[in-house]
């Protein structure tokens, strides 16, 4: 990546603050943590869900059941790109029926990933409610989908590329914008 055209919009402390705030809002919104299930969307959503779980645990002293939900098989653009290896889907043993499922992803863009996640959830069970938490909302929605919890609203042009780096997958925490064509 050409660093001269890349700027950092969130650094590691911004990201930790955002996650703590999201955790607070989730608990507040759900009036407690005991009905929640956190499901991260691979790859970075899984690490974010785990961080939110630990932030909630600090607030509430309760560890929310947390898992991952791979949406590859539910994508509507499979024809357009090479098939990918599947990421694990792991649903907590408590299940999702009658619970409040918080879907966690790194960047909200067109909304198609979230649509696929809703389809996938539908095959797994019947939650009481589904909410969406994202670290970054960069706009340009193609579907009527909006996030419930946002770390940072980031106005972008379509051509710009937003990248979330996390210690778990990338060695350090940051959110960057890269100008020009998406990779």
């Amino acid at each position: 990546m050409d660093s001269s055209r890349t700027r950092i919009v969130l650094d590691d402390s911004d990201i930790s603050r955002a996650i703590r705030r999201i955790a607070h809002e989730i608990v507040e919104n759900a009036k407690g943590a005991d009905e929640l299930v956190l499901l991260g969307i691979p790859t970075r959503g899984v690490a974010l869900a785990e961080r939110i779980r630990s932030a909630i645990s600090e607030i509430e002293g309760y560890s929310v059941p947390t898992g991952s939900l791979d949406i590859t098989l539910y994508r509507d653009d499979l024809r357009l790109r090479p098939a990918r290896a599947l990421e694990p889907t792991s649903i907590p043993s408590e299940g999702i029926d009658d619970r409040i499922v918080i879907l966690v992803d790194d960047v909200l863009f067109s909304g198609r990933t979230v649509r696929a996640a809703l389809d996938a959830l539908n095959d797994i069970g019947r939650p009481r409610a589904v909410r969406l938490a994202v670290l970054v909302d960069r706009g340009h929605r193609e579907l009527p989908i909006r996030p419930d919890f946002v770390g940072k609203n980031l106005p972008t042009s379509v051509g710009e590329q937003v990248r979330v780096n996390l210690v778990e997958s990338d060695g350090s925490d940051s959110v960057t914008i890269h100008e020009g064509d998406s990779a």
Binding site: L73, L86, P88, I91, I124
Partner: peptide, 20 residues
């Protein structure tokens, strides 16, 4: 690996995926 993941999906209640 893909087969293993698909097997665990179909072990659950999901018998049919919209993929194709």
């Amino acid at each position: 690996d893909t087969a293993a993941e698909l097997a665990s999906l179909t072990d659950r209640s999901v018998k049919k995926l919209p993929t194709l």
